[in-house]
Each structure stands twice: as structure tokens, then as C-alpha cells.
Amino acid sequence: MSEAIDFDPPFLHPDYRSTVLRAPQRPLVRLPREWFHRSTGPVFGRIPVSPSDSDLTRQHPGEPQGQRIIVSGRVVDSDGRGVRGALVEIWQTNAAGRYLDPADQHPAPLDPNFTGAGRCLTDEEGRYRFVTIQPGAYPWRNHHNAWRPAHIHFSLFGPDLGSRLITQMYFPGDPLIPLDPILQSVPDPHGRQLLVCDFDLETTVPEWALGYRWDIVLRGSNATPMEDRD
């Protein structure tokens, strides 16, 4: 199997203060990859996914406040092949920059028509698509006057343990991006760019919603054999 470039952040990135007491200090134990990749299929089948879970604007009686957007893309493996049947879970703030989570105490309004959580499975080509609302920036206490750039959290589960990924997707042109210690923990500028989606006129639906495109490359291999379609 081919090896792709690793742009992951280090565990310890002191500018992001919470890493200081949580980053492991011993090196990871590296073992032959096949010792870990033994599942023959996805194990996440117990997680309920219904088709309506991919439209975050229709989970309540009314429409949420904010700019309606579509976020769509492809989940591929390191050989560029679509990963079909991958579980994609997202969560985000509402338009005002507030999470529904009770742990979020930012004094911005909640939206009774927006939860901010969605799920879907990728299709035969590895594609996913969510309809949601443009999330807001919000303050945090990492350092003086710290603000997180608007982002959507993505959790991905492909066919095996090696493909597990949780990450965050950012929006192009956000002035907070260079100031964010979490995104800046990715050491290489090209790696950081991989976490920024592209505005996409083809995904944009006329008179309805702006479209963004974001492709995701997972580690691991396709446990389910499929033909090369590229």
C-alpha cells in the first residue's frame, strides 16, 4: 500500500494550553500495521443513521437562523479511492457561535430550531453531503481575547481502526485562522490548508444555499474491495 504524507499535529502544542497535561510523554509503540487492521467491516452499525440526519436545518418545527449552506465532498483512502459506507458525524455551533452543549456558557443565544449535530453514510463513491447553517466564531479562554474561527467538527469511521479520524473543517478567508492555536498546531501550511474547505459554485444551489466542498483522506485501506473509478 502506498504511504501518504503525514500532516498531523504533535500531541504537545503548548500554545493550545490543554495539551500540556494531556499529551502523552512517551513515544507511541509502533507495531506492524496488520496487527491492528483485522476488522472485516465497519463495527459502528449500532449508531442510528437516518436519511434526515444529514439536513441540520430540518430537525425542528421551524427553520434555524443564519446563512443556509451545503457542505459536500468525498471521503477517500490514501490511494484516492472512495470509501463507501463510512460514517460521517458532524457537530457545530449555531449562527451565533453557541453550541447546544450544556458545557458551553458563551452568552450568545441558543436557536430553538437548531441542534447542530448530523450524521450520514458515504455513498458508493465515498461522497457525503450535509445541509446546515454557517457556524459562528466564539470566544474561549486559552489566552487573552482568544476566538475560535468558525468550524464544523467531523468524525469519520471507515472500515477499520486505522481509518478513525476526528478533525475540524474551517472556512476560506476567515481572519481568525492565523490566530487559532488549534489549527496552527498542524505544523505545515499545506497541512493546514487541507482543513479549509473551498467555496464551490457547483455545490451552491441557486436561490437556496451556498455550497462548500471538502474532501477527506483517511488512513488505512479499503477493507471492502472496490474497483478503481478514478
Binding site: 503525514d6 498531523d8 493550545y16 457537530w91 467538527h153 479520524l165 478533525t167 475540524q168 497541512g191 487541507l194
Partner: peptide
């Protein structure tokens, strides 16, 4: 061959 999408923290609000 495409590079892997980098990881980011799950954060406190999941």
C-alpha cells in the same frame, strides 16, 4: 497520492 487529512481535537462540546 493525496496526503492524509490532519487530525484536530474533539474539543469539549461533543
Amino acid at each position: 497520492m493525496p496526503p492524509f487529512t490532519p487530525s484536530q481535537t474533539v474539543g469539549p462540546f461533543f
